[in-house]
Nucleic acid binder design. Sequence first.
DNA 1: TTGCCTATTGAAAACGATTAACTTTTCGTG
DNA 2: CACGAAAAGTTAATCGTTTTCAATAGGCAA
Lengths: 331, 331
Amino acid sequence: MNITIKDVAKAANVSVATVSRVLNKKTNVSDEAVQAVNKAVEELGYNPNFLGRDLRKSETKRILAIIASTEQSFYSEVLRGMQDAAYMQGYDVLIATTRDDPDHEMHLLGMLFSKAVDGAVLLAPKLDSGTISELAKKYQLAMCLERLDDCEILCVTIDNERAGYDATNYLLGKGRKRIGLLTTEVRSQSSVDRENGYKRALRDAGLPVDEDLIFYGGYDVESGTRGCKALMSLPKPPDAIFSISDTISIGAMTYALQNGIKVGKDVLFFGFDNIAYSHMFIPHLSTVEQPCYLQGKAVIEKLIHNIKSEEKDTGTYKLPHRLILRESTGD
Amino acid sequence: MNITIKDVAKAANVSVATVSRVLNKKTNVSDEAVQAVNKAVEELGYNPNFLGRDLRKSETKRILAIIASTEQSFYSEVLRGMQDAAYMQGYDVLIATTRDDPDHEMHLLGMLFSKAVDGAVLLAPKLDSGTISELAKKYQLAMCLERLDDCEILCVTIDNERAGYDATNYLLGKGRKRIGLLTTEVRSQSSVDRENGYKRALRDAGLPVDEDLIFYGGYDVESGTRGCKALMSLPKPPDAIFSISDTISIGAMTYALQNGIKVGKDVLFFGFDNIAYSHMFIPHLSTVEQPCYLQGKAVIEKLIHNIKSEEKDTGTYKLPHRLILRESTGD
DNA sequence: TTGCCTATTGAAAACGATTAACTTTTCGTG
DNA sequence: CACGAAAAGTTAATCGTTTTCAATAGGCAA
């Protein structure tokens, strides 16, 4: 039924070994053989079976990127970086989504355990630190964008604590004294880190951390709207609001706009991630930019290095972030 | 080095065949054997090697979804539908991006040719109709969201022509007589279809198709902004603008807002796709909603059916769309 | 002619699973 | 107690490659 290397060998009147050598551009094969094989491959429309090849070589040249969903357009640049780096070294990147289900995350990691891919990168782990740390010992696993406490694994991210500090500090520098925070109930480490940065900035400025000014919601726009409403309904409402994600900020600004609150004057808004819509939305949103492409590129380069060297780098690398100032902070 | 089924067999004091039977929940194996094997699997931390298994069974239970990039958040629902349908039948969906490069698209299809996946779905084909048609004959290939003229391939999409017609017709029903169109220079079939629907609606209403009112740009927000500027600078500017994508509409509305044009009054705006931001942006955007989840679900169900039956359905299925009316059309 | 070296080549052994074909055990029945 | 069918288990073939190892052929020096 299917055309195999044997058929090619027969058609080219050589052995399968020779066909294999030609296909893999090995030396020590005569010009005539090369010609004959190529002709046969062409005529028969032969495609090597990767399963056979991969089994024999015990490598697939494929890496799995495990994300929560493709919804956050923000992953797109990271993936681009990953792909560029991978492709450069002859690897392909496949993407799979967990939909925030740790069981499904584990199921996908099964591809790693079972050699269907050579390595995997977790972009939004739901599994706990201990489990991941354990797996990272046995398999070629890395993390990107997120980090986990006490997790010994190759990891490329930014300094989220510092970034939260910087954003908050910028608002303080604008003379704001009551700064609200919109964050999430379910805690990713990056959220916690950003939040800690926010608190440290307040403390460093000699201001109290007022729990009333912190709203815990979801990652969606509606959460931002609800959060903004809650904060602005306080007896003493905030004069600036920092959110741990742009999406939340956009929801928050939506509330402000619809309730006569002047964005960038009455209240300043600061987001996080620099998603595409942060400069489509009017007014444009000030935000923290992560080096997405570079993080993706770096994690793959290091992971492939690990795969090849079999001597594991389990370090954490923090790439620099950058504040982007736009209308929402009056810039 | 690696733990194989042989090691498990040895540890459990049975043959590899028995181990395989236990692992695959086959009959003809005693309770004791099951116990022993499970214990050995547990103790050794055994994971079956998929390459061996897949080679032998000549199936991977994996399907590749090929998209342009993960940027358009709009794919996310489609992929969710695909995953649900696939998972239901024990398949996994892997995603790979072409980045609009037909060569890379072909490279990725190599996974299909070489049995690394059981089937593939193209969501934004860059290859030409003839090539794809040819491949679809030999391999388990399907298309979703897009269709191609003269392409014999399993395909699930919507009636884009009809949708373009409906949207334009709605604007006409609002008494608008000069309706602009923002479309793209590089033509996907869906864009062309939407455009044709727009034209047919005008003709049916006895209005001329004025080429000046059609702007050809890109898929991005900036294009929408430029397009709107161009149209509104005409001696006789439009009183409504239909775009073949929400992103473009949002760019267009941005221009309008910044230039004192009343959205939903002076000019009505109609988008396409119902992306998340279409109801985050203020004013909210009227748009055409595609049944994304259902399209994804349907294409996978049909593709898996093809894979299993080996008797190919190469039909085109058009699922119903729906107009969503919001502030940008004064609703 | 002989012997040695090198460049090609092919036969066969992996890789790790599933499964067809065969053998041994178990157990009920006459 | 003997027989035979059903159950349980084993052996070995197989999937499609790559790759080791041995073999062959040809060239060249002695």
